[in-house]
């Protein structure tokens, strides 16, 4: 073949077609890699529990998942922004993760293990990722994006997902006990190796002022998300410096 030089490829129609192929191939592979890697990171760092309906509490659920979920989107946005000026890194990462997670939840927990989907649904982080991506377009500043976008990410995780969760927390009188639909599902659908007490959830203490638990947690989550954003962004852009991207 005569066409071997990059300069020639660039100008030819064949080159454009090839580049489009490369685009699609890379994008599809990245969806798989980034989606799977974020899922894996979450499973390793916080354990795999976010999707159980009876683990979504007011203290740990609005705190741990959003903070750890920030790791990959921030790094990917760091790379797509600094190298390409394409500001969809966070949305791309979260989109990939959410897509693969649904596949995993559906097959592993519904088809294979037999739990109703109502009991094993994941939270969504997509709106938070769009806000983060949009912030960097509007401000062009990594600092402000971390301060505003990442903070919103932590603060808004609960309201975003409360839409899906609220119904599960309506009180039910069951055999003379006050419970919620979420508790009831945890009790009824048998999980031999996962007893009630292993849930990482808010235990009642004298300190908890019922109505302020969520806002306080959300603000705290916001601050942690800001920190994770900066660290992860730096890590992403640093790693990217040495990779194949440079060589093209």
């Amino acid at each position: 073949m005569a066409v071997t030089e990059t300069t020639e490829v660039r100008s030819s129609a064949l080159g454009l077609r090839l580049e489009r192929h490369v685009d699609w191939m890379i994008i599809i592979i990245l969806i798989l890699i980034i989606g799977a890697a974020s899922g894996f990171t979450l499973a390793v760092t916080m354990g795999d529990w976010e999707y159980w309906v009876d683990w979504k509490d007011r203290r740990f659920w609005p705190l741990v998942p959003p903070v750890l979920m920030m790791i990959f989107p921030a790094a990917v946005l760091g790379i797509t922004w600094t190298k390409l000026r394409i500001p969809f890194g966070a949305t791309f990462a979260v989109f990939s993760y959410t897509l693969l997670k649904w596949v995993s939840l559906y097959f592993n927990f519904n088809v294979f293990a037999g739990f109703p989907m109502s009991m094993v649904w994941q939270s969504t982080f997509i709106p938070l990722a769009i806000l983060l991506d949009a912030t960097i377009v509007i401000t062009g500043s990594v600092f402000i994006t971390g301060f505003v976008g990442a903070f919103l990410w932590g603060v808004l995780m609960y309201p975003v997902n409360w839409v899906m969760l609220a119904g599960f927390h309506e009180p039910i009188l069951y055999n003379g006990e006050l419970v919620t639909a979420a508790d009831l599902m945890g009790f009824e659908y048998i999980r031999t190796g996962l007893p009630e007490y292993v849930r990482m959830i808010e235990r009642s203490t004298l300190r908890s002022f019922a109505d302020t638990v969520v806002p306080l947690t959300a603000v705290f989550a916001g601050f942690l998300c800001v920190l994770v954003f900066y660290v992860s962004w730096a890590a992403g852009t640093f790693l990217c410096r040495q990779t194949w991207v440079k060589k093209v």
Binding site: R58, P159, A166, G167, H169, E170, P171, E177, S204
Partner: peptide
Amino acid sequence: IGAGFQWAEARHPVTTPLRT
């Protein structure tokens, strides 16, 4: 996000935390 949250609050004005 705002509208969704308002809608959920209006639909389920009273909720209780998980039992422990």
